[in-house]
Amino acid sequence: MADEKVSMLYKLKPISDRLPTVTRPEGHVHFRTKMMWVVVVLVLYFVMTNVYIYGLDQTETLDLFAQYRTIMAGSSGSLLQLGIGPIVTASIIMQLFTGAKIIKLDLTNKKDKACYQSVLKLVVIFMIIFEAVPQVFGYLVPSEEFVGTFGSIGAKGLIVLQLFLGSYIVFLMDELISKWGIGSGISLFIAAGVAQQLFTGTFNWYAVDATQAMSLSNPPAGAIPKAIYVVMNCTPAEMASQGYDIIFLQQPNPMIA
Rank of each mutant, 00 (worst) to 15 (best):
D3R: 04
E4D: 15
K5N: 12
V6Y: 05
V6H: 05
V6M: 01
Y10D: 11
L12G: 09
L12S: 10
K13D: 10
K13N: 14
K13H: 10
S16F: 15
S16K: 12
D17Q: 14
R18Y: 05
R18W: 14
L19D: 06
P20E: 02
R24D: 13
P25E: 08
P25H: 14
P25K: 13
G27I: 12
G27N: 13
H28C: 08
F31I: 14
F31P: 02
K34Q: 10
M36E: 02
V41R: 03
V43T: 07
Y45E: 03
Y45A: 09
V47A: 08
M48D: 02
V51C: 06
V51F: 10
Y52C: 00
G55L: 08
D57E: 07
T59Y: 12
T61F: 04
T61I: 05
L62G: 00
L64T: 05
R69H: 07
T70C: 01
M72N: 11
S76W: 07
G77A: 04
L82T: 04
G83H: 05
I84Q: 00
G85E: 08
P86I: 13
T89G: 12
I92Y: 04
Q95G: 12
Q95E: 15
G99L: 13
A100C: 11
I103C: 03
I103G: 04
D106F: 00
K110F: 06
K111L: 00
D112C: 04
K113N: 10
C115G: 01
C115M: 11
S118E: 13
V119G: 06
L120Q: 14
K121H: 11
I129T: 13
E131A: 10
P134H: 06
V136E: 03
F137N: 02
G138R: 07
G138T: 10
V141N: 09
E145N: 08
F146Y: 05
G148Q: 00
G151H: 02
I153Y: 11
K156C: 06
G157P: 00
G157W: 04
L161F: 03
G166Y: 01
I169N: 02
V170D: 05
E175F: 01
L176A: 15
I177G: 00
K179F: 04
G183V: 01
G183F: 03
G183I: 02
G183P: 04
S184A: 02
S184N: 08
G185P: 02
A191C: 05
G193T: 00
V194G: 00
Q197E: 03
L198V: 09
F199W: 07
F199N: 03
G201F: 00
T202C: 12
T202N: 00
T202K: 00
T202L: 15
N204W: 09
W205D: 15
Y206D: 12
A207G: 07
A210H: 06
T211Y: 01
T211N: 03
Q212D: 06
Q212P: 04
S215V: 13
S217A: 13
P219M: 14
P219N: 11
A221S: 15
A223Q: 13
K226M: 11
A227N: 09
I228W: 06
N233T: 15
C234F: 03
P236A: 08
M239N: 07
A240S: 10
S241I: 13
Q242V: 14
Q242R: 12
G243Y: 09
I246M: 10
I246E: 11
F248M: 14
F248W: 15
Q251N: 13
P252N: 15
P254K: 14
I256G: 09
I256A: 15
